[in-house]
Design a binder for these strands. Structure first.
Length: 206
DNA sequence: AGGATGATTCTCT
DNA sequence: GAGAATCATCCTT
């Protein structure tokens, strides 16, 4: 396979097969993985510490009512980025899972900043490292992710790269944030105790 | 064509 | 904890 993005030392890219399976399981396994955006200014990215699963047939998922111009990437092959605009101003990024024709993905809600901290600070207009990427909109702003990378390959062929990292020491599951349907499903996953997770923290602390 | 709706964030109290 | 900001997107109340 040819890669246009640099491979990180000790970081092996995820494969389509890694992501083609059950979305709930993939959402858990993505904790600890690294998401990197390779830009002309430099490399920006970090380690995923919080995810949410959005399944096929899930009333809370954008895919629920079938493909539209906005969500069609969700129905494509696993391993691409589904990016959408939230509240008109923010962007959110998902890892598409399962197979073509199935509308499923994992929302990346927070990362532990690892590379390009100063670029992230400049983009966010804030200094505190804990505020750089502790939320789906924040991390997209920090990483410079917008609709230009909607549908972008995450497995090595594009500017975005998803690679394996250090697994979490523990995982906390909780109801998803900000949705109004299927609120009883505990499909939000976070590395237990991580200070890089968005609020409200699923283990109670503020 | 127009109204309703957010997979959010920030700034207050 | 609550409310505002703000607009892309979707569906038609």
């Amino acid at each position: 396979m040819t890669r246009t993005s640099p491979t990180l030392p000790g970081c092996e890219p995820w494969t389509e097969a890694d992501l083609a399976g059950d979305t709930l399981e993939v959402a858990r396994r993505l904790l600890g993985a690294c998401l990197i955006h390779c830009l002309p200014e430099g490399m920006v990215g970090g380690r995923i510490v919080e995810t949410e699963a959005y399944l096929a047939g899930d009333p809370a998922s954008h895919s629920f009512r079938g493909p539209t111009p906005r969500n069609h990437v969700m129905f494509g092959p696993a391993g691409r980025a589904y990016v959408y605009v939230s509240y008109g101003i923010h962007h959110c990024v998902n890892v598409v899972t399962e197979g073509p024709g199935v509308g499923a993905a994992v929302l990346v809600r927070a990362i532990e900043p690892r590379w390009g901290l100063d670029l992230m600070r400049a983009r966010r207009g804030i200094e505190d490292a804990r505020e750089l990427a502790s939320g789906p909109g924040k991390l997209c702003q920090a990483l410079g992710i917008d609709l230009a990378v909607d549908g972008c390959d995450l497995l090595g062929a594009g500017r975005l790269l998803l690679c394996h990292g250090e697994p979490p020491h523990g995982v906390t599951a909780a109801p998803r944030v900000g949705i109004t349907k299927a609120t009883e499903k505990a499909w939000r996953f976070a590395e237990t105790g991580s200070p890089w997770v968005s609020r409200p923290r699923p283990w109670g602390e503020r």
